[in-house]
């Protein structure tokens, strides 16, 4: 093995300022999955496969050499059709998946939201869920104490925080989860398809918030909405077949995205 996968996450404090030219640097990222062919999810099948000399899986290459840099304070949109490798890329960035090849360097703390409300439990109260969610994201009690009021205020759920989550409406649950996501203080925020939550008024509030982040916070946003790409992003990246197809101005990338389907017709 000449090329070992590397995943380097540096913290803000320990990095000299000369390295701060980028917030995230992804270099030549490869990731493949083993997809079980038949029913390989049992001991019996595994033994049969082994006896017959059959590999119980097929390799599927999802990312084939993705490279890009993201500068601090940049708002970057990642777009691409279903199955193009966007979410896999995001999960590699969030250290959920380990890449086989290539490297990811992160300057600063990274707060990933692959999904809203991870670890939310319906039997716990709103307050308990906020702290549990915070702990999962790597925040201490003290840090959560500092954020708590803002989160509740943004979600407009002040009177309900001691009620169990199962008694919330689905809209209320999403609002709470979303508020944690955008109030969580990290250097880099990763959001996957989460803009469309709540009613019109709440969406308006979220959009205002996103607009206010401009230039302040490093954000990576995965979305299918070209309207959002044009509205919020400084730059966008189109992923196609596990590679960066187009990278550049939101307008250019949005047009390229819309052209993906035209080419086929």
């Amino acid at each position: 093995m000449s090329k070992l996968p590397r995943c380097i996450h540096k913290s803000h404090k320990s990095t000299p300022s000369s390295d701060q030219a980028y917030a995230i640097r992804v270099h030549d990222l490869h990731k493949s999955f083993r997809l079980p062919t038949e029913r390989a999810a049992g001991l019996k099948q595994a033994i049969f496969n082994w006896l017959k000399g059959v590999k119980g899986y097929t390799e599927q290459q999802v990312l084939r050499g993705v490279s890009f840099d993201i500068r601090p304070g940049e708002f970057v949109g990642i777009v691409g059709r279903n199955g193009s490798g966007k979410s896999t890329l995001l999960k590699c960035l969030a250290q959920i998946y380990y890449p086989e090849q290539g490297s990811i360097t992160v300057n600063g703390t990274l707060v990933p939201f692959i999904e809203l409300g991870v670890g939310f439990n319906p039997e716990l109260t709103g307050r308990e869920n906020v702290y549990l969610n915070g702990a999962l994201l790597g925040f201490s009690h003290k840090e959560m104490d500092a954020m708590y009021d803002e989160i509740v205020h943004f979600a407009e759920l002040e009177p309900f925080m001691d009620a169990k989550l199962k008694n919330y409406s689905s809209g209320m649950q999403v609002r709470l989860a979303f508020s944690i996501a955008i109030r969580a203080r990290g250097d880099i925020l990763i959001l996957d398809e989460v803009l469309a939550v709540g009613d019109a008024a709440f969406q308006e509030k979220c959009n205002d918030y996103f607009a206010s982040l401009h230039g302040e916070q490093t954000v990576i946003l995965v979305t299918h909405s070209m309207e959002n790409v044009r509205r919020f992003c400084d730059r966008a990246i189109l992923i196609e077949n596990g590679k960066v197809a187009v990278e550049g101005k939101p307008d250019v990338v949005a047009t390229a995205y819309n052209n993906l389907w035209k080419k086929e017709d």
């Binding site: 439990n121 549990l132 702990a135 790597g138 925040f139």
Partner: peptide, 14 residues
């Protein structure tokens, strides 16, 4: 440690 504590507390409560 914080995460561990939080998970234990949740399990215990539930």
């Amino acid at each position: 440690r914080i995460l561990l504590g939080e998970l234990i507390k949740t399990d215990f409560k539930l």
